[in-house]
Amino acid sequence: MARSKIHVGLEIGTSKICMVVGEVKADGSVKILGVGQSKSVGVRKGEIYDFPQVRACVKDALVKAEDASDVEIGSVFLAVTGSHIQGVNHQGSFRLPESEDTIEPEHVREAKEIARSVTIPPDHVYLHHIVRRYGVDGYHHATSPVGLTGRTVEADFHIVHGIRSRIENQIKCVREMPLDVDELVFSPIAAAQVALNREARERGALVIDIGGGTTDYALYTDGLIEASGCIPVGGDHITNDIHLVTGLPFSKAELLKVREGDASGDPARGVGTVKVSDEKGFAEAEVKRQLLNDIIRHRLEETLRLLVRKLPEGALERVGMGIFLAGGTSLMRGFGELASDVFQKDIYRPEPPELSGVQASFKDPQFTTALGLIRYAQVVESDRAPKRGFLSRLWPFAR
C-alpha cells in the first residue's frame, strides 16, 4: 500500500524566505503541515550577496517551519532564480540504421542525448532537462514512440541553465543548516505547478511571478512549456523610484507604495495628496497621488513590456487562457488592470483550492512558488524515486 510522503520547499527570495512543509497522501492529495517565514536580508535580485545574513534568515525560517509542522526537516526542494538563468528549447534527431524500422528504447535515448547536448557557457550548469514532446518522421507524439515504425525519431527539450557559482552559494547556504537539497527548481517552473491546471496549459497560459527583486515567467502552450526566464526587476525597483522622486527614505517609500499606490492608470484614483508622517506622527511630507501612481505604473509597465520582448515571436497569440499573476508585487492595487492593458488577455491570480491545511493568509499569490515546490516534489515522486546523488554529479560538496 502506498504511503504518504512529506516534502519541504524552500524559497530564498529578495523580500522573504519561505519554507513550507507538505504531506502528499496516498490518494495524491496534499496537506500543508506548516510554514516558516523570515524577512530576507542579504539577497539582491534573487541572488545572495551577504552570506551570513541570509544563512541566519534561512535558519529562522527553518525553526519556524519545524515548530509549525512538528516535523524534523532533513532536506528541501530549493527554488532558484536570477537573471543569469536561461531557458532554451532544443531538438535532437536520430536516424535509425537502414536495417531497422522499429523504434527501440536505445533509439529514443540517442535522440534525447542529442537534444540535451546544448552548448552552454563554461561557467554555467544545467538545472532542468524537460521533455516537451517526441516525434517520428516529423509527426509529433506526446509520449515515447518506442515500438512505432519510422525512420527518424526526434526529442524536443526545454533546457534551463545558470551560472554555477551563484547557484552553489544557495546550495551552500542550505547545506550549512545542515539540510540536503533534493532538487533545484527554477522558480517560475515551481509557480506553474500551482498556477496552471491542465486546461490552462493546453489553451496557452503565461505565469508571471513578480517579487521584490525579480520577475520570473514561464510560458505554456499546447500543454508544453515553451519559454522561461527571469528579469532582474521587481517591487524594490518601484520603491527606489519613489524614493528618488520624492526624497522619502526607502522604508517610507515602501509603506507609501503598499498602502496608497495604484497601478491602474485610472485618473479617479489619482486625486488629492497623501500625507506622510514621521515616527512621532507629525506630518513630514505630502505626495500627490497622481505622481505616486504614475511612478508605480511606469515602472511596472516597463517591466511587463520588457518581458513581452523576451517571449518567442508570436507567443502571446498562442496564449488562449490568459495571464496568471503571482508574487508579492502582483498584489499592488491596479496591477491586474495594467496587465490587462499590456497583454490584452484575461488576468488571473492563482489559488490552490485543492490543497488542505492551508491558512487563508497563505493562499495569496506571494506564496505561489513555495506551494509549487511541494507540487513539483509530488510530480518527481510519482515519476521516479528521489535521487540522493542528483547534486553530487554537479556540485562535489553536496551530499
Rank of each mutant, 00 (worst) to 15 (best):
T368D: 13
T329P: 11
E381Y: 15
F343H: 11
T368G: 15
D364F: 05
F343T: 09
T329M: 06
L311R: 00
M332H: 11
G334I: 01
L331Y: 11
K310L: 07
L371F: 12
D341R: 15
F367H: 14
E381P: 10
A326H: 06
E351D: 11
E313A: 10
K363T: 14
S356A: 06
V342R: 06
P312H: 01
P353C: 05
P352T: 03
V380S: 13
S330I: 00
L311A: 01
V380G: 10
E381N: 14
R375H: 10
P353K: 02
G327T: 06
E381F: 11
G320F: 03
Q366M: 13
Y348F: 14
L331H: 13
E337H: 15
R349F: 14
V380P: 08
A360R: 10
E337P: 14
E354P: 09
V379R: 10
R333S: 15
E381T: 10
S340M: 08
L311P: 04
G334Q: 04
L355E: 03
M332T: 13
R318G: 12
Y376H: 12
L373W: 03
T369P: 13
P352E: 04
D346T: 00
F362P: 09
P365W: 04
V379G: 09
P312L: 03
E313N: 08
T368V: 15
M332V: 07
V379E: 10
L311G: 03
P365Y: 05
G322S: 06
M321D: 13
Q344E: 05
S330L: 00
Q344I: 01
R349A: 12
L338W: 04
R318S: 14
G372A: 09
L371K: 05
Q359H: 14
A370H: 02
F343D: 12
Q359W: 08
V319Y: 00
A315S: 06
E337K: 15
E313Y: 05
T368M: 13
P353T: 02
G320D: 03
I347D: 09
L325G: 07
G327A: 12
L325H: 02
R375D: 04
Q359S: 15
E317D: 15
K363F: 05
M321V: 03
E337T: 15
P365Q: 05
S361I: 13
F335N: 00
R349S: 11
D341I: 09
S361W: 15
G334A: 08
Q359A: 13
G336W: 00
F324Y: 14
Q366F: 11
E313Q: 08
I323C: 14
E337G: 15
A360K: 12
E313V: 07
G320R: 03
L355V: 01
E381V: 11
G322M: 02
G372R: 02
G314T: 00
V342C: 13
L373Q: 02
D364L: 09
G328N: 02
S361E: 15
